[in-house]
């Protein structure tokens, strides 16, 4: 693995794109999100689970009050659907937040307490003000490309 550091965000993003386009397995490490374009399936998953929670809760309440345990209070209708809405909403929120939380860790394969990249000298700065790109796998093409990318440091690490 080759760990390369850069002076700022733009240099890192530029280097990452160059390396990736050259077919190298590059990954950035930065103290804040590197760029604006965020695509993730998690929001869609949260929506689906939210809807599942809300409709599931609604269906359960409808079942409980019409079939499971009928309660005649002054002849009021058993299927009092407006009163199911608050619980359905809250359950939907709970499912959506819970799903988003779990999905975030699942999709990133966390917990992942140790990674070879941690051995890099000064890699601590990745969570302070350092901008890094790690190149894994076949790195033979990397040195030639890095010459033009003006890295501040280059380090070879065992994988």
């Amino acid at each position: 693995m080759i760990l390369v550091s850069f002076a700022d965000r733009d240099a890192m993003v530029h280097a990452f794109r160059t390396l990736r386009d050259a077919g190298l397995a590059a990954e950035t490490y930065s103290p804040m999100p590197p760029d604006e374009a965020d695509r993730s399936p998690i929001p869609l998953l949260m929506l689906l689970f939210g809807l599942l929670g809300a409709f599931g809760s609604f269906a359960m309440q409808a079942y409980a009050t019409t079939l499971g345990y009928k309660l005649d209070v002054g002849g009021r209708p058993n299927l009092a659907w407006p009163s199911y809405v608050p619980c359905a909403f809250e359950t939907g929120v709970l499912f959506a937040i819970g799903a988003g939380f779990l999905a975030y860790f699942a999709i990133n394969r966390l917990p992942h307490l140790y990674d070879p990249v941690d051995e890099g000298a000064g890699f601590d700065a990745a969570t302070r003000d350092g901008w890094f790109v790690a190149i894994r796998g076949d790195t033979r093409k990397a040195p030639a490309l890095l010459e033009d990318l003006r890295p501040t440091s280059v380090e070879a690490l065992p994988e």
Binding site: P33, R39, S40, P43, M46, E90, V93, I97, G100, N108
Partner: peptide
């Protein structure tokens, strides 16, 4: 839990956090 600020972690992070925030706001009103 092994958060290192990798590009993948950040990419999913922002959308997850923003979506949670969008749900928390109506939740507190409810």
């Amino acid at each position: 839990l092994g958060f290192r600020g990798s590009g993948t972690q950040w990419r999913h992070y922002r959308s997850t956090y923003a979506t949670m925030a969008a749900i928390m706001a109506p939740l507190v009103v409810s």
